[in-house]
Simulated assay, not measured.
Amino acid sequence: MQTTEKLHPKALGLDKKSSLEILTILYEGQIEAAKCVSKSIAFLDAGAKAMAETVLMGNKLVYAAAGSSGLQGMADGLELTPTFGIPISQIKILRAGGIQDMSQPKGNMEDNKSAAISDAKVIKNGDCVICLAASGNTTYPSVIMKKAKEVGATTIGIANNPDTKLLTESDIPILLPTPPEVVAGSTRLGAGTAQKIALNMMSTYMGIFLGNVMDGQMVNLVANNIKLMKRSEKIVMNITGCNRSIAKEALKKAEGSVKLAILLTSGAKSVKTAKDILASEGQNLRSAISRVKLE
């Protein structure tokens, strides 16, 4: 029996316990699940670098999963554009049953092999495909992984059970060995938490590796609302030491690009010059700032 299907040692009589006892057990289950991620840091490093290389080459990041794992993948993928400025055209999210009308349960679709084969047609050589399933054997992501490998894509498999298809058949296997769920088989709990943490770590390190994070700030964010516009101004202020009015003016000249606004404020003579320096430094802002100050 897979670990995610086993009974939790504290589950017996759970429904008879006090509210404080139940919530404490649930909380402890989340903490134990989170701790499991540390065992896979080396593989998360490899995954993040594979993702970064894919983005640099202009290829796609593809998330493929079913059920709650599909929700984890979708949550990660949808944040890459606003957080790190990765073009939406380079991100694809494949979830069994699709992402339309998600209020309707579509559990039966995880076994639909023909749907997986059809959805996998978007995958091309050079893409990086991240397949998730707590069980590690779910048909939908397993079939997509197989198709991805056939076309020459890099595959990352994330599962919560060892010796399963997503791990044995992937280029980069990431095992998150979470303990039994407090509610047996309800992998939206511990397994889902561990998956979300792993995806957070991997995609954030990818953003750092790409030079889209400096001093813990999102220097390549897409500011499409008032909150993010103010954040952009604050980032320019924090990194350059300028005041808000200068930051606003620089962002206006840079058409909202935080990196270009920082370079202009740091001494770049024009937007074109800032773009050229940034390009020559592989989009790494810290290196580009050093170049500007030398010129």
Rank of each mutant, 00 (worst) to 15 (best):
A48S: 15
T164C: 06
V258N: 00
A274D: 05
L166D: 00
N137V: 10
N220E: 11
Q30N: 12
V222I: 14
P177S: 07
G136V: 08
E28A: 09
L44I: 11
K106W: 04
S186V: 09
V236K: 00
E281V: 11
S103P: 04
G126D: 01
G192K: 08
G256R: 03
C242S: 10
A75W: 09
K121I: 12
S270W: 04
I86T: 04
A50G: 02
K146W: 08
P177L: 09
L167C: 03
M218K: 00
G107L: 03
L176V: 08
M145Q: 07
S89G: 10
V182C: 08
N59I: 10
L294W: 12
A254H: 01
A115T: 10
L285T: 02
E233L: 05
R286Y: 07
A50L: 05
K10A: 13
R188L: 02
M214T: 12
Q283P: 06
K10H: 14
E53V: 10
L20M: 14
E169T: 12
E28P: 04
C128Y: 05
L294M: 13
R188T: 04
K248Y: 11
L80Q: 04
K230H: 13
S290N: 12
A134D: 00
R231N: 00
P180R: 09
Q72S: 14
T81G: 00
G107N: 01
V143W: 04
V213M: 06
K49L: 14
A66V: 05
A11L: 08
S186D: 02
L278W: 04
A66T: 03
T154P: 07
T3D: 06
T3S: 10
S232F: 00
M74G: 10
L132S: 04
E53Q: 13
G70Q: 08
D171N: 15
L20A: 14
K165W: 12
